[in-house]
């Protein structure tokens, strides 16, 4: 297999969120926070708008009584194919991987926050506080994910550690990675099964098919960032 063929065989990971199924319970938010060792928020962090939620429910109220519309959209990192965050990073602390996942290298991040400003989806979070877990709460930390120091930016990684684990397991069993074997924590936890995850380049995959649905749209599509998170709007 030459280089090009190898590259083609690589999946391009993407997500589809069906807003017609989502009931805005925020299970995805909490599943992400516990999986990824987000420090427990405090009233102080909330008051200063500094709570970290890689997956966040964005409310949007439009109209006037009685014709009001409340829209609730769960928003992870879009893992854009043309990510604006990467272009502004002065130290190369963020990069797009061969499978389309936008990585954040904490050790390189200098905390300048250019990327948090550049991201049109506000999906990037700065660690304003040292990571702290009251008393025994640190016992519940997930051993697969590091904690981040104060002063670095972090964001949704599509639970990349899960991909590594799934790959390791597949390699140990001398087989290919199976579809559905790698799911981010939010997708796994979704009570209404409103979230789908897989290889957008595989035309047979559920995500690729759903992404082509007439209901499909992406956030701020006109910016040309080419997000790999698709939404399915409500309705028939």
């Amino acid at each position: 297999m030459n280089e090009t063929e190898h590259a083609k065989a690589r999946p391009r990971w993407g997500m589809v969120i069906d807003l017609d199924r989502c009931d805005a319970c925020q299970g995805c938010t909490t599943a992400c926070q516990t999986e990824n060792n987000i420090p427990p928020p405090t009233p102080q962090s909330a008051a200063q708008d500094r709570s970290i939620r890689w997956m966040e429910l964005l409310p949007n109220v439009e109209g006037e009584y009685p014709r009001v519309k409340l829209r609730l959209i769960p928003r992870p990192c879009m893992h854009c194919d043309k990510p604006p965050c990467i272009k502004v990073c002065p130290v190369g602390a963020t990069a797009i991987g061969a499978e389309g996942i936008i990585a954040q290298v904490y050790a390189r991040c200098i905390g300048c926050r250019y990327c948090t400003t550049a991201c049109p989806y506000t999906a990037r979070y700065f660690n304003w506080y040292p990571p702290r877990w009251p008393e025994q709460l640190s016992q519940s930390l997930n051993p697969d994910v590091s904690v981040r120091p104060r002063g670095v930016v972090e964001k949704c990684s599509f639970c990349h550690h899960r991909l590594q684990k799934a790959r390791d397991k597949a390699a140990a069993e001398k087989r290919e990675l199976r579809p559905g074997e790698y799911l981010p924590a939010c997708v796994e936890a979704c009570p209404t099964k409103a979230m789908f995850f897989g290889d957008l380049d595989d035309p047979r995959s559920e995500v690729a098919q759903l992404a082509r649905s007439p209901r499909s749209f992406r956030l701020l599509e006109d910016l040309g960032t080419e997000p790999k998170v698709f939404y399915l709007r409500e309705g028939e």
Binding site: V105, D144, H160, L163
Partner: peptide, 18 residues
Amino acid sequence: ESAAATAAVGSLIGCRTP
């Protein structure tokens, strides 16, 4: 390379308590 050059680096630091 194999880990798709990624957020993984964070993960590779291993488990640390605060």
